[in-house]
Write a protein that binds this DNA or RNA. Structure first.
Lengths: 314, 314
DNA sequence: TTGTACGCGTTATCAT
DNA sequence: ATGATAACGCGTACAA
């Protein structure tokens, strides 16, 4: 019985012939190790949790895909959950998953710093697009990409542009507007702020009237969905995009092969973000005894990947 | 100890005052029930598995979102995995998840009928877009939508069209081409078959030369990604879409608010598919003792939802 | 190298 | 209504 356990757990500690016998017997009986019992005995479940604000978004679909690919073969499975961008819901999910998973990846978390820090005390976590003291994270820096984008727009004669922000409650939103505003003003331009709005095409379409009233020639949207919705609305109103209105976005759908025409976007390396965050959480779990406990809180690592400008010809 | 268990499991079987005492003690000690131990004792994990051919596809992102929403609050978590469309990988994932989950949803499975049926003998499963004897399923019927689409194209003067199929190994592909062929011939038109190709924009773009050689005026693509890739390629070659080439697709991105301009598409009710399949698998798990065992294999239910034509104005 | 016995934290059975 | 105890299936000291 113990030998059987070792054959699957520590193959090195058992004789070759015995191993063969056990494996044959296992195959004959259709035996498969019970992960639940193993989890109870070892204290770790082989489960990782991922919480995102919107499961249906292609932005996070790419992230999920990358994380799942990364942990596959390392003996881990991925549990996904959707917080709908609500801080309370996000926290409830953490409670549910607590004790069920070995670690948690929080993508674009909506909770306050203190809540997140208290979560990190109970469970290994990695945050995506949110940097906090003592918590490992992977973020994408869009400020350079935004500055590039603003210069690109200024070069093409757009002095007065609008920034459509969103979603409500997103800390990234403020930072993005500030980047845009600074870059525009550095080029003697102006950036108007519209929103925040929900990050979907419908909400983007609904900003059209405000855009038209504001008399801008170009728009930078929070993400490609918003941009696309706005573009569709503009086109169906008879506007020529990009001649009458240039639509650009921070986010993009390039990962799924959907680089939108007439929309210049900023590429975010979501696959790499997924790989990095998965790698970190696995390292945290494995080395939790040595590293995690000893390492002073302020030594958490923050990986920052850069977004880059992707210019469409049209 | 047993009483504490009952307070959380069957609150009705314990006195009000005792309940209060236990709850207070639990709160004071920060006690949370251990899901793993509970799973070992009860035999069910509260985990559901979902296997898709491509996690990064927005098509499945919508499905994931719907399933997760449906099982949330019913005490279940969702484990997602990506088979990359490879039958062997799909089967390996099933083996891994076997014993870990209480039930499995197989979306667009690539395995043979017999393999799927043998899986169903060991584990409650529901298939999506695949109907097999004895296995509950939820499918989308696109044949009516395709017939509508063909008539729409014929009405607009397209006698000769191309169907771009894919992905390789998809049974749905054959059925779709047959629907298209039948509908076109019924209107004295012709349907040429191109592919199969991978269901992404890149592959769609690569079909352009074949399309141009085939001298067709309209195209029906396997999904919106393929259609979009083709459209981008056509536009960048100087073609006017839809004047020079009308691009349509079976699949669509309407669920995420991305109804593509110049692409007339067939709407698939993915959210409803997710709800239905989740509901069925939960019912199977709950009533597995009475229903599942007794019910003759051929009485499995097959829910078939209809896809509908969505015509864009442009 | 292999076998024995205990513990992981909970639920279910039985008795009270 | 409540309390004691045996499983659930595995990993792991410990002994052989």
């Amino acid at each position: 019985m113990a030998t059987a356990s070792r054959v699957f757990g520590k193959p090195a500690m058992v004789g070759p012939d015995t191993t063969a016998k056990v494996r044959n017997a296992a195959a004959a009986l259709g035996y498969v190790a019970n992960p639940t019992a193993r989890a109870l005995a070892t204290g770790s479940s082989g489960l990782l949790g991922l919480i995102v604000p919107d499961l249906s978004s292609p932005y996070f679909a790419t992230l999920i895909s990358a994380i799942q690919t990364e942990i596959e073969g390392r003996g881990f499975e991925l549990i996904v959950s959707d917080s709908r961008g609500v801080p309370e819901t996000e926290h409830e999910i953490v409670q549910r998953l607590q004790g069920r998973v070995d670690g948690l990846i929080l993508a674009s978390p909506r909770n306050t710093d203190s809540v997140l820090i208290s979560i990190a005390r109970r469970l290994p976590i990695v945050t995506v697009n949110r940097e906090l003291p003592g918590i490992d994270s992977v973020s994408i820096d869009v400020s350079d990409g935004l500055a590039d984008l603003c210069r690109f727009l200024l070069d093409h004669g757009h002095q007065r542009i609008a920034y459509i922000g969103g979603p409500p409650g997103s800390l990234a939103d403020d930072g993005r507007f500030q980047s845009v505003e600074a870059a525009m003003e550095a080029g003697n331009g102006t950036a108007l702020r519209i929103g925040p709005v929900q990050p979907n095409a419908q909400a983007g379409a609904e900003t059209l009237s405000a855009i038209q009233l504001s008399n801008v020639s170009a728009v930078i949207a929070y993400n490609a969905l918003v941009a696309h919705g706005l573009m569709l609305a503009a086109v169906s109103e008879g506007l020529n995009v990009p001649r009458d209105l240039t639509v650009t976005a921070v986010d993009d759908l390039i990962d799924i092969g959907l680089s939108l025409p007439t929309v210049t976007a900023i590429t975010q390396p979501m696959t790499e973000v997924g790989q990095k965050s998965a790698g970190i959480i696995l390292a945290l779990i494995s080395g939790s005894h040595e590293e995690l406990q000893q390492r002073p809180p302020h030594q958490a690592q923050h990986l920052v990947l850069s977004a880059s400008l992707s210019v469409n010809k049209s």
